[in-house]
C-alpha cells in the first residue's frame, strides 16, 4: 500500500486515494473545518493524529462500494472539541478505531449516518481519561440492511470526569438494520464522576438492536494477585489497564492501525499515573 502524509493546519478538503495509507497530522487552532472524501469503489487506511486547541468540524463522506479502516488518535493535551458527521453510502464499510489517551479536556460528538442499504460502521474506542472527556456516538440507520457496532472501552483515572452517550437510531422503513453497542468503563476513583448513557431509538420492526453497558473498579483480588508476584501497586494497575484496553485491537483487521493504536496505548498507559 502506498503511503502519504499530509499536515493539516487550516480548512481543507481531502480526497482519499485508493489503496493508500494516508496519515493526516491535524493541528487545530480556533475553529477549523476538514472534509475527507472516500470516492466510490475505493479502499485504504487513514491515520488521523489530532493536536491543538479549539474546535474541529470534521465531515467524512464514504461513497458506494468502499472499504476504509481509520484510526483517529486525539493527542491534544489542551481543550479540543470535535464534531464529526459521517455519511456512508451503499455497501460501504468503515472500521474506525479511536484513541483518546491524553490529559486534555476533550469533547466529541460523532454522528454516523448509514445512508443506503449495505452501509456499515464498526467503532472501537479506547480511552484513558486523565482529565475530562464528554463523548457522544450516534449511529442513524436511514435505510434497511445497514449495520452499526459501537464499542467503547474506557479507564477513568482518579479525580477525572467522563460522560459517554451512545445512541443507536433506526428510522422508519429501515428494515433489517442492526445496531449494537458495548460500553465498558473501569473507574479508579471510589467516587467516580462517570455517566454512561446507552440509548436505542427504534422506529421499525424486523431489526436487531442491543446494548451492554458496565461500570466497575479494578478488582482488588487481581491487584493483590499481581502484587503478590512482586509488582508494585502502580505496575499492577498498569498491567490491568493494558489488559483492559489492548484486546480492543484484536478485532481490528488493518495491521498498520492495529500496530499504531497498540503503541499509543502502551506508551500512554506507561506514562500515566494510575494511583
Amino acid at each position: 500500500m502506498r503511503e502519504v502524509m499530509i499536515d493539516v493546519t487550516s480548512h481543507n478538503s481531502i480526497t482519499l486515494a485508493h489503496n493508500t495509507l494516508t496519515t493526516l497530522n491535524v493541528t487545530v487552532s480556533g475553529t477549523m473545518n476538514l472534509t475527507l472524501l472516500a470516492p466510490m469503489q475505493t479502499k485504504g487506511s487513514v491515520l488521523l493524529n489530532l493536536d491543538g486547541n479549539g474546535e474541529l468540524n470534521l465531515r467524512v463522506d464514504v461513497d458506494r462500494d468502499s472499504t476504509w479502516s481509520m484510526l483517529f488518535n486525539n493527542d491534544s493535551k489542551e481543550s479540543i472539541k470535535v464534531i464529526e458527521n459521517w455519511g456512508i453510502k451503499q455497501n460501504s464499510s468503515v472500521s474506525l478505531a479511536i484513541g483518546e489517551l491524553t490529559a486534555g479536556n476533550h469533547e466529541k460528538a460523532a454522528t454516523y449516518h448509514l445512508l443506503e442499504e449495505g452501509a456499515s460502521i464498526f467503532v472501537r474506542g479506547a480511552s484513558l481519561i486523565q482529565s475530562t472527556l464528554k463523548a457522544t456516538h450516534t449511529a442513524i440507520h436511514h435505510k434497511g440492511k445497514t449495520s452499526a457496532q459501537l464499542d467503547n472501552y474506557s479507564i477513568v483515572l482518579k479525580g477525572c470526569e467522563y460522560l459517554l452517550e451512545v445512541v443507536g437510531k433506526i428510522e422508519k422503513a429501515a428494515k433489517g438494520a442492526k445496531t449494537h453497542q458495548i460500553s465498558r468503563v473501569m473507574n479508579f476513583d471510589e467516587k467516580p464522576k462517570t455517566t454512561v448513557n446507552p440509548k436505542l431509538i427504534i422506529d421499525e420492526n424486523e431489526v436487531e438492536a442491543s446494548h451492554a453497558a458496565s461500570m466497575g473498579q479494578p478488582d482488588v483480588n487481581q491487584v493483590y494477585y499481581l502484587q503478590s508476584r512482586g509488582m508494585s501497586r502502580s505496575e499492577s494497575l498498569k498491567l490491568i489497564t493494558l489488559g483492559y484496553l489492548l484486546p480492543i485491537i484484536d478485532v481490528i483487521d488493518d495491521e498498520s492501525i492495529k500496530e499504531r493504536l497498540s503503541e499509543e496505548i502502551l506508551k500512554k498507559v506507561s506514562e500515566s499515573c494510575l494511583m
Binding site: 478488582d219 483480588n221 487481581q222 494477585y225 509488582m231 489488559g243 483492559y244 484496553l245
Partner: peptide, 26 residues
C-alpha cells in the same frame, strides 16, 4: 511466595507479559 488456593484470572494480560513483569520487578 504464595501459591493460591483460588488463583485469580486476569483478562487481557498474557501469561508471558505477566511473568516478564514479575521477573523484571525484582
Amino acid at each position: 511466595f504464595l501459591g493460591m488456593q483460588y488463583p485469580q484470572e486476569v483478562s487481557g494480560v498474557t501469561n508471558s507479559d505477566f511473568l516478564k513483569a514479575a521477573l523484571n520487578a525484582r
